[in-house]
């Protein structure tokens, strides 16, 4: 009986042990390597799109690009303009300029999927409601027949 009462505690101890083993694992830092300017600009765009709070990381990347004398596949003038825009907190404009500096059309914030309701989707929505109602009606009937 006493052993049975102890078992949940043993379980917790094992779980905690395994979790703490994980916590004890530290991971090493990354080695610094010279980055491709195009990749640095792409990273800045991604930072600004996905996590605007990482504006400092994006700016640091752009500074690194601007320190280069030449940068293939990147228009440094537009990167400079984007840096100015970023300094003014104009993130969408900066993203647009950076996209243009890479010679591509802006894909601001990725292709957000929107719902364009058309007749077919209305029919699908009505079907969805009917399916739910049919299921609920069937369960109700089963419940009634079970009580009789």
């Amino acid at each position: 009986m006493f052993r049975q009462k102890l078992q949940p505690l043993v379980l917790l101890l094992i779980s905690s042990l395994l979790l703490s083993t994980g916590l004890a694992l530290a991971h090493g830092g990354a080695e610094e390597t010279e980055m491709d300017p195009k990749l640095l600009v792409e990273q800045s765009v991604a930072f600004l799109q996905a996590e605007p709070s990482k504006i400092d990381e994006a700016s640091a990347n752009l500074t690194e690009v601007l320190e280069l004398e030449t940068a293939e596949q990147v228009n440094l003038e537009l990167v400079q303009a984007a840096t100015v825009a970023l300094g003014q907190g104009a993130i969408p404009e900066a993203v647009h300029l950076l996209d243009r500096s890479l010679g591509r059309e802006a894909e601001t914030l990725g292709p957000v999927v929107e719902v364009n309701l058309n007749a077919r989707l209305y029919i699908a929505m009505i079907t969805a409601l009917l399916l739910t109602a049919l299921g609920a009606w069937g369960l109700g009937r089963r419940s009634v027949s079970a009580t009789h």
Binding site: M125, T127, A128, L131, T132, A133, L134, G135
Partner: peptide, 9 residues
């Protein structure tokens, strides 16, 4: 069936 209705919606 109820679950499918919710998923379709």
């Amino acid at each position: 069936l109820i679950g499918l209705g919710i998923m379709v919606f």
